[in-house]
């Protein structure tokens, strides 16, 4: 059972007000518990939580490089196994470290079957370096390296499907979660750390600075992503989707129009053609994961 009162991530960290990843750190640790060793990648969370000597982490924590957390975690796990120790090993890394630069190490660690949980806090761009696009940036999002312009509608590629890639490695448990559904998030982390073998959780962590919305709306933004079908919370066991959060879907505009990274799609007037393409992504998600709640026809 998750102990919600457990606080393993301390006050005084330097995240922006309303930071999705900071909330994710707290919730992840509640789910993982105190008997956990955290392996971090370079990124926002690492920087806002560990300027020497002011660490916010109350459990053992190690950071090496941007792209090697899965390999460092492999070594930690091997050492613990050799010593007969029972701590859980949890890597917590951003989407750039996970989707892009860390893929080699992650693929190796998952193929070798280390007993680790790898968690990606996905804020959908390189926020620490100033909001550059990553392989996790959604279609048409304007970032500092995929800016909307006269010849550009923002990021030209859809988000990489990393959960399925890691499920294909034979991961026994793969899940997506959102800071906007904290109980679900904590339970998934608890399940992952107690599942032997390499498990993966991808957590949607809205970033007010990078996406362009008020910090008070972080939870609301995560909910809208789910309610529009642009983010799906699901669980995969041994490669099969066993559960997905069902919603009464809203049109994608409701999510897009409240974020600066998509505002070029609405100026000077709504770009219906592009918005329809994003709606198609949501529709495909809905079909693939069966998330639509069928509403009763009106009498």
């Amino acid at each position: 059972m998750v102990d919600k009162s457990l606080e393993l991530f301390d006050c005084g960290h330097r995240a922006c007000g309303g930071c999705g990843p900071a909330l994710a750190a707290r919730l992840i640790m509640k789910g993982a518990g105190a008997n956990t060793i955290v392996v971090a990648s370079t990124g926002c969370m690492e920087v806002f939580s560990t300027p020497y000597p002011e660490t916010a982490w109350k459990t053992p924590w190690i950071h090496s490089l941007f792209q090697n957390a899965a390999a460092v975690a492999s070594g930690v796990e091997a050492s613990l196994k050799k010593q007969g120790r029972d701590e859980k090993v949890v890597a917590i890394c951003g989407d750039g470290a996970t989707f892009d630069i860390g893929m080699l190490c992650i693929s190796g660690a998952f193929e070798r079957g280390h007993d680790i949980t790898y968690i990606c806090y996905d804020n959908e761009a390189y926020m620490n370096t100033g909001i550059q696009r990553s392989g996790a940036t959604p279609y048409d999002a304007s970032t500092t390296t995929s800016p909307a312009g006269r010849n550009s509608l923002g990021n030209s590629r859809p988000k990489k499907d990393l959960p399925r890639i890691l499920a294909a490695h034979g991961a026994p448990y793969v899940a997506t979660a959102s800071v906007s559904y904290p109980n679900d998030l904590m339970q998934k982390v608890e399940r992952a750390v107690n599942t032997p073998g390499p498990c993966y959780i991808q957590i949607h962590t809205p970033c007010s600075t990078g996406w362009g919305f008020e910090g008070s709306k972080t939870i609301e933004m995560g909910k809208l992503a789910i309610q529009t079908g642009l983010w799906v919370n699901f669980e995969m066991v041994d490669g099969e989707v066993v559960k997905a959060k069902k919603v009464v879907r809203k049109p994608v505009e409701e999510y897009l129009k409240v974020q600066k990274r998509f505002r070029h799609l609405f100026r000077p007037q709504p770009n219906t053609e592009e918005i329809a393409k994003i709606q198609a992504i949501a529709d495909k998600n809905a079909e693939r994961y069966g998330i639509d709640i069928k509403q009763k026809p009106q009498e």
Binding site: G12, H13, P53
Partner: peptide, 21 residues
């Protein structure tokens, strides 16, 4: 200095972020 740039928990609280408010 602590060898290897390591630190025990607790010192984050030295940074009183309430001043940002």
């Amino acid at each position: 200095l602590n060898i290897g740039c390591a630190a025990k928990p607790g010192r984050a609280r030295d940074n009183r972020t309430g001043s940002w408010r």
